[in-house]
Design a protein around this nucleic acid. Structure first.
Length: 305
DNA sequence: AGCACA
């Protein structure tokens, strides 16, 4: 099975050769950090062949995000997706209806699907009981020229161009191309859930193990920590029992801080619940919200035979 | 930053 596009280097260690053109976008998938990217050309070249990481043009790689509250800010949408590998830009439409919607553009479809699975059903505002619905968009966002860059506070380098405001003033674009932004100075929003942890998984199927946020392998039981001292089993049960496949919840308050174990019927349900409630802020929780992980072993596992 | 119960 020696099918190769190129001759392998003679030594066992060498700098990797240039990948085939179709594979270059996969360089986005890198643990914890974006690979350094060349700065975009100063003039033109937004979506032509001068872009070295240009994805296949025909695949859908834009997400449609519904269920956002009316008062959502472009920053919140940006912060929701910014850490996903392959994130390119987001575009929020708000103001016309009680619910806003947004689009998030990714470098390729696998990246978009991964972000979709990790954010679909996520609680965006616990007090409003507001969870978002994420799907592939019907079509990719038209590659608008990035002149309507949102003046993002952390970037602090570009101003928006006053002569090219978004039509009807209802939209906001955030383009972060070529920026490996590592600042975390404005990710706190009152009563809005913050997306917390993304695994470095490189799976792209619908498999529930995709994007396991911690080190434990997927398990039907979840482990919940970072809870406030005054949290009650009742409060937690109220929150988790709304998730599909919920079976039972047990709180443990003996040691360190209060933790809870939440059992679901299968890994798929627990994964959905994990994605949905990760970082959710309970009335009794500290600012960061609760941390949800797969448990190390399933609750109440016993032999019946 | 913490994983029990059967």
């Amino acid at each position: 099975m020696a099918s190769s596009y190129y001759n392998p280097p003679p030594s066992s260690y060498a700098a990797p050769p240039a990948p085939p053109p179709g594979a270059s976008a996969y360089a986005y998938r890198h643990h914890a950090a974006y690979l350094p990217q060349p700065p975009p050309p100063a003039y033109g070249g937004y979506f032509d062949r001068a872009e070295p990481l240009a994805p296949p043009r025909d695949e859908l790689r834009t997400l449609f995000i519904a269920g956002l509250p009316a008062d959502v800010k472009p920053r919140e949408v940006y912060n929701l997706f910014r850490d996903f590998p392959g994130y390119v830009s987001s575009h929020l439409r708000s103001g016309k209806s009680p619910q806003s919607y947004a689009f998030a553009v990714f470098a390729d479809q696998p990246s978009a699907l991964a972000a979709m699975s990790a954010t679909n059903g996520l609680t965006f505002d616990l007090e409003k009981n507001c969870s978002i619905h994420v799907d592939l968009a019907k079509a990719n966002s038209r590659p608008k020229r990035p002149r309507t860059d949102y003046d993002f506070p952390t970037s602090g380098k570009k101003s928006r161009n006053p002569r090219d405001l978004p039509d009807s003033g209802a939209g906001s674009n955030i383009h972060m191309s070529g920026m490996g932004n590592s600042s975390h100075s404005l990710n706190a929003y009152p009563s809005a859930q913050r997306y917390a942890n993304i695994g470095s998984s490189t799976a792209f199927s619908k498999d529930p193990s995709m994007f396991a946020p911690q080190t434990n392998p997927p398990c039907p039981t979840l482990f919940v920590a970072n809870l406030g001292q005054s949290v009650s089993e009742r409060e937690l049960t109220d929150v988790f029992s709304s998730c599909e496949g919920f079976i039972k919840l047990k709180m443990q308050n003996k040691f360190g801080g209060p933790v809870a174990f939440v059992d679901f019927k299968d890994e798929y349900s627990s994964t959905e619940a994990l994605n949905r409630l990760q970082g959710a802020i309970l009335h009794s929780s500290p600012g960061e919200g609760m941390r949800v992980e797969y448990a190390k072993s399933r609750m109440g596992l016993r032999r019946r035979s």
